[in-house]
Amino acid sequence: IALNRPQFFNSLSCGMCFKVHGSGKGLGSDPIVGDSTVFVKDLCPECLAGSVDLAENGDGRWEVEIQAVQCPVGSTKLEYKFQGSNPWYLKLQVRNARIPVTGLSVWQPKSHRWAAMHHSSDGFWLMGPGLFEKPVHPSAHTPLKMKLTGANGVVIEDQITQMGERKG
Rank of each mutant, 00 (worst) to 15 (best):
A55I: 07
G123P: 00
H141E: 15
F124R: 02
W114V: 03
G74M: 06
F18G: 00
H119D: 04
Y89H: 15
G123E: 04
H119Q: 05
G28T: 05
F39C: 06
E165F: 09
K167W: 12
K25Y: 08
A68C: 11
W114C: 03
L54S: 00
F8C: 01
M117L: 09
L92T: 00
E133A: 15
M16I: 12
P138A: 09
Q83D: 13
G74C: 06
G60Q: 04
S85Y: 01
E165P: 02
P72I: 08
Q83W: 10
I160F: 03
F132T: 13
A115K: 08
D59N: 09
K145I: 04
A115I: 10
V20R: 03
I1C: 09
H112P: 12
E165C: 08
S23E: 14
L12N: 04
E65G: 05
M117E: 01
L48W: 06
T161D: 09
G164H: 04
P138R: 10
T76I: 11
D30E: 08
T76A: 14
L78V: 09
C71T: 08
G50N: 00
C47Y: 07
I66S: 02
V154I: 13
G128Y: 04
K134E: 09
I1Q: 03
E79P: 00
Q162F: 12
S75E: 11
G50V: 00
A68Y: 13
G130D: 07
S23P: 02
S11N: 03
R113D: 12
H112C: 14
W62N: 02
K41H: 15
Q159M: 15
G84A: 10
N4T: 07
C14M: 15
T37M: 13
C14E: 12
F8E: 01
W62Q: 01
K91A: 12
G28K: 07
Q162R: 11
H112R: 15
P87W: 13
I156E: 10
I1V: 11
G153M: 07
E46Q: 13
E46A: 15
Q83E: 12
L54V: 00
G50R: 01
N152S: 12
L27Y: 15
D59P: 02
L148G: 05
A2S: 07
D30R: 07
L48H: 08
N10K: 08
S121V: 14
A140H: 14
R98E: 10
V106G: 03
R95C: 05
V64F: 00
E63F: 11
P31R: 00
R98F: 06
E65N: 06
R5F: 06
T76W: 11
N86Y: 07
